[in-house]
Design a protein around this nucleic acid. Structure first.
Lengths: 221, 221
DNA sequence: CGCCACTATCTATGTTGATAGTTAGTTGGT
DNA sequence: ACCAACTAACTATCAACATAGATAGTGGCG
């Protein structure tokens, strides 16, 4: 069942989210490939990330399909860059995606795969894994909390520009959904941290005064 | 910094988890590609999944690299299949991976990307998205709870075979880590369900008796 | 002036993953 | 005897991502 937008044919709306991440950003204001790349490196990058080598070709494809229009912009003496703005077809494509329910893909989770076989690891390596999990999610958590603070205090550049182009009646919705998103990510991070903490306790317990694995030699208690 | 195992060279241990998922399963007992495929389709598939078209070539590669050894097994009159068993080098590679701290990859999360722009969706489509999120994670949760029950009641085929080949002193560890893994996944599912439920409430609240979006026509209260 | 960090874009290559389809033998039921 | 469902393995193609590197202009600092 193909979906026709304008004069192009999209097979399967499922996935290909990079495209929609780009449309989301370009729905706010025109940007160059480099601008988008920078966005993915920072703020938005905590929800979606892509390398420039994926962004530039995708932008060209999207222009060819009529979702974007690009214009040459001079920069300095000889420099030039290509700034893309979203077309009506692009807006429609994005809205279409937003109104389509996502299909979820199969689980593929290295951290939990490893956890399921943790008895293979030396106790200290197992602990290190858990600590890394905590550290990783603590970092994410911090960034997301930061973003929530920015939303609450209207200190987000991107969001303010987005709000400026939004009818007054819809502004609280924009903010509410953003906040909602980041709250979910904070809660997820908390959960992961608590899980790994539980893991640390479990490891201590399982390897407490037990001989066998060269390791627990100088165990205390 | 290359890592040399036996006579082969692995660049970067990061990722390529399919290989280690296969080693994990083959550490329990020899299996054919089809066996492994079936495992990924069912029990283990909830932590890791791969299509057969990825499994067969990977097994051949692993044999070429000395991590596995395959033997032809006849099956019926003319039928044959190839059963792989893990080699010492394979065991070492797996243990090496288990003792190496994972590198975490950048976030790429379609569900939260959509959530951040949910004001673009029609209210009913937004609700549908949240319902799908709840349904998806409820399904996962069920399967994981099921697995926990199997662990507690020693009703898991795979796990029992694994325990049979494990020194008595380590058996409670094997079970404890498995349980720990699935507990974490259940907790994650719970969190996602709670988040989406919160989302449903938020949508109701944001679109309650507000004109504008053709939709809230016959709103109550 | 020369250097360096940054802006800007592009190419190349390899891996992983998703989807679909092909071939061939086996087993069990009607 | 035949058919369906399953076992077994392989091939082809395409999208998605990662990684690395090439090229070239800009702007500021010492």
């Amino acid at each position: 069942m193909d979906i026709v937008i304008g004069n192009t044919v999209d097979k399967k709306v499922g996935s290909m989210s990079l495209r929609y991440a780009l449309l989301a950003l370009l729905s706010v204001e025109p940007m160059t490939g480099y601008d988008l790349y920078k966005e993915f490196e920072s703020s938005v990058g905590h929800v979606w990330h892509a390398p420039d080598s994926q962004i530039y070709p995708e932008l060209r494809r999207m222009e060819k399909e009529g979702l974007l229009e690009g214009e040459e912009v001079t920069w300095g003496q000889r420099g030039k860059k290509r700034r893309y703005h979203i077309t009506d077809a692009g807006v429609e494509a994005f809205r279409g995606w937003m109104n389509t329910t996502l299909e979820y893909t199969r689980v593929r989770d290295p951290a939990h795969l490893k956890a399921a076989y943790l008895e293979w690891a030396a106790p200290e390596a197992a602990r290190e894994q858990m600590r890394a999990h905590i550290e990783h999610h603590t970092g994410l958590r911090q960034q997301w909390e930061q973003r929530i603070r920015e939303i609450d205090q209207d200190r987000s550049e991107m969001l303010n520009r987005r709000l400026a182009g939004t009818p007054e009646a819809d502004r609280d919705r924009v903010k509410a959904f953003k906040r909602f998103t980041y709250e979910g990510l904070v809660a997820r991070a908390d959960q992961e941290i608590a899980w790994a903490q539980h893991g640390l306790n479990l490891i201590d317990q399982l390897y407490a005064n037990r001989p066998g694995s060269r390791q627990a030699a100088g165990a205390k208690k």
